[in-house]
């Protein structure tokens, strides 16, 4: 899933290890999320959202463009 994690991290001048420490995950996890190779769980997505004080949908883009049915 595309996301803004790398940009948000750069704005704070954090390394992947710094972000990993904030989120209590490894650098591999941060790298895998940033490169779209791994989609975080909902709890981790909320943690990221709280850390950057942004809504989840502003950080992650599921590229859904269809209209809602309801």
């Amino acid at each position: 899933m595309k996301n803004q994690l790398k940009v948000l991290r750069a704005m704070r001048s954090w390394s992947q290890a710094d972000l990993g420490e904030h989120l209590d995950v490894s650098r591999q996890a941060v790298n895998a999320i940033e490169t779209g190779k791994y989609d975080p769980s909902l709890p981790l997505a909320f943690k990221i959202s709280r850390l950057f004080a942004l809504p989840i949908e502003e950080i992650f883009d599921d590229e859904f463009e269809g209209a809602h049915n309801d």
């Binding site: 790398k6 750069a10 390394s15 992947q16 290890a17």
Partner: peptide, 16 residues
């Protein structure tokens, strides 16, 4: 560039 700002030496090395 963005890559230089977001990857430290340790990050780059750890990814290998």
């Amino acid at each position: 560039n963005l890559k230089e700002r977001t990857m430290t030496d340790a990050d780059e090395m750890a990814n290998n």
